[in-house]
Design a protein around this nucleic acid. Structure first.
Lengths: 111, 111
DNA sequence: TTGCTATACCTAGCAGTGCAAGGCATCCAG
DNA sequence: CTGGATGCCTTGCACTGCTAGGTATAGCAA
């Protein structure tokens, strides 16, 4: 199933923050985690993720650290900061508000 | 709570279609219905709704009929068509896919 | 050694569009 | 006769998502 771009846009920040809430992580792995969590339904491109990560850092929601993996590769790990936790809580609340609104009609329409 | 514009964008079409699934309706009333369903959390402007309604009609998802209300006002009623029902089912499935993805992380993160 | 795939990160630039802002008309209450 | 609620419509451009392109290294196979 191809997901509408609006839906992808709406879920990007909450998903990234949620994944970072699981623990520090780096860009490439975040994309794979999204694939896992969505059971293959969501396929992010790196070109859409990195700008989001940079934005989150600029706004104090996450901080980043370069690290060397055992493999020898350089990875930029992102960690959630308090501001990011607040943003996540807010985004979660927003999502649930809309979800409840939709669910209300779906229930009425006997879904 | 102010809703992120991405989230509003993502929910517009599914919400409009869901409301029309409840029964034929017209623009102005749809905006009020959204306010009701969201318990005041979502406030749509007509400037964002009408173009969506027109798009849905152009694409055969709904059809419209001008009617005269008892009040004497002219209203343009929209009714859901089979194509619109299909789109709604698809949008609903998409929404639930993303919702499940988010819920999975939230559950893991012990929300 | 050469080439291919997976890993890993970055950003410029512009196509595409959401929606604010503005316009029009009618009904009713005060 | 004024203002607010009802009711519909469209233009235009500020904004931005994401494509497309760039860099680099590890590991493997031919």
């Amino acid at each position: 199933m191809k997901l509408a771009k609006e839906l992808v846009a709406a879920s990007t920040v909450p998903l990234v923050l949620s994944i970072l809430e699981e623990g520090e992580n780096y860009g490439y792995a975040i994309i794979q985690r999204v694939r896992e969590l969505s059971q293959g339904e969501m396929e992010w491109t790196d070109g859409m993720l990195y700008p989001v990560l940079h934005w989150l850092e600029e706004n104090g929601c996450v901080k980043s650290e370069w690290r060397e993996a055992e493999s020898g590769r350089r990875r930029k790990y992102y960690l959630l900061r308090p501001t990011g936790r607040k943003l996540l809580a807010d985004q979660k609340a927003q999502w649930l508000t809309v979800h409840e609104t939709l669910r209300r009609t779906w229930r009425l329409n006997h879904g």
